[in-house]
Design a binder for these strands. Structure first.
Lengths: 217, 217
DNA sequence: GAAGAATACGAGCGGGTACTCACATTTGCA
DNA sequence: TGCAAATGTGAGTACCCGCTCGTATTCTTC
């Protein structure tokens, strides 16, 4: 049961085929958001997309393949947003960014990823994402962790930090951040005006040596 | 579709009936762990339990009711472990526990709950807990948050803390803790020997006023 | 032991599911 | 223009699902 094919079956070569594939993906996204995974059947997808089931199965070997494609699209877009935000943050003037500002920027970057198709993101994450055989959330988390670990190893950061294994600290931060940003009841937390500042505090206090001061922005 | 009954249909009055119900629950747990929610059908459950579908439907109005019963059993057991751990921690000598020790104890108590049927716990959490109309994880999180908020309002705690809204702080802590303890890749994190101490640090540093000292245990 | 209540049984119903296939239509290209 | 390849079609197949119901078995009570 884990040997199901999940890749695309045939590549669309003509423009109308690409339109079809796009319609299928969009319809799937809509149905997932509106009715959840269990009620999103291939027949419904085809109907909503305005194509026939047959066309659907020309490009996807089974239902899960569509969802996986959707997930990969989304993950790609979110990673792009994240990496762009981080680049914007660090590139312009390359020196002497206080740790707290860097963390604040990082949080901003992660929050930015939440703006990318939030409804679809939520449903994919909660209903199909992190269990099942293809653990894409795991991959996402690992990439984010690597990125944060690299940032933590930067000399500028090291200067303001206590002695700490960068990989371990990155794991802690990313996982804690994951909970705060995507866990249950995260909507309410994020909506709170104090949220961004407090999350920043949570992380910087953890990284800084004991006894360091911290002023409000 | 949200008006489905989820409570038990009929209470087992004889011993053999209780055996049947128990067999159904155990079979369901096994199938959930082995094959996931989607492949755990009532027919399969009955077969694995060594009873007939008819018997199954005598005690449960539908499939989800079984899962909910399983969830409630588990939640109850875990809560028991949690409360016992907390009692052990606080009862013996009732005064003057440093904040960091209290947090450490709380973390220990939560970690202890992870030892209760971890496989079942994981699958229930990830696959069925937090989507669908019955949002059980949400409920669990809310209860935990309330508990922590109450603890934070205790005068002993307040003394060592910075000025901070207890409800908000509790949310942050519970959500962050959730990510670290149950998020993707949490296994690896928790297995690390530094984990417990670092999580303790993460939380205490967040709660304490800036500039407070903290020694290793 | 008789009688009624509780329990157990499982074939089968209605319906939704994933997916196929023989055929129709459109497209690119010579 | 003609023709093969690409694409689109949707009725139909085989299957599995949740769940019911009439019947058989076992327990309790007197």
């Amino acid at each position: 049961m884990s040997d199901k094919e999940l890749g695309p079956r045939k590549a669309p070569r003509q423009k109308r085929a690409q339109v079809t594939v796009e319609a299928i993906l969009q319809a799937t996204a809509q149905l997932l958001i509106q009715h959840g995974y269990r009620k999103t059947s291939t027949n419904r997808i085809a109907q909503r997309a305005g194509v026939s089931v047959g066309s659907l199965y020309q490009y996807f070997p089974n239902r899960d393949a569509i969802v996986v494609a959707l997930f990969e699209d989304l993950a790609h877009k979110q990673m792009q947003v994240f990496e762009d935000s981080v680049a914007d943050l660090l590139e312009p003037r390359g020196r002497e960014i206080p740790l707290s500002d860097a963390v604040r920027g990082l949080i901003g970057a992660i929050l930015a990823t939440r703006t990318v198709e939030p409804d679809l993101s939520r449903i994919l994450l909660e209903e199909v994402g992190w269990t099942e055989h293809v653990n894409l959330v795991d991959e996402w988390t690992q990439r984010a962790t690597t990125l944060v670990a690299t940032a933590l190893r930067h000399p500028d950061a090291q200067e303001e930090m206590r002695a700490l294994d960068a990989d371990f600290a990155a794991s802690m931060i990313v996982q804690a951040g994951f909970g705060v940003l995507y866990g249950p009841r995260s909507e309410a937390l994020i909506a709170d005006p104090r949220f961004e500042e407090e999350l920043c505090l949570l992380i910087t206090c953890y990284l800084k040596p004991r006894g360091a001061g911290e002023g409000t922005s």
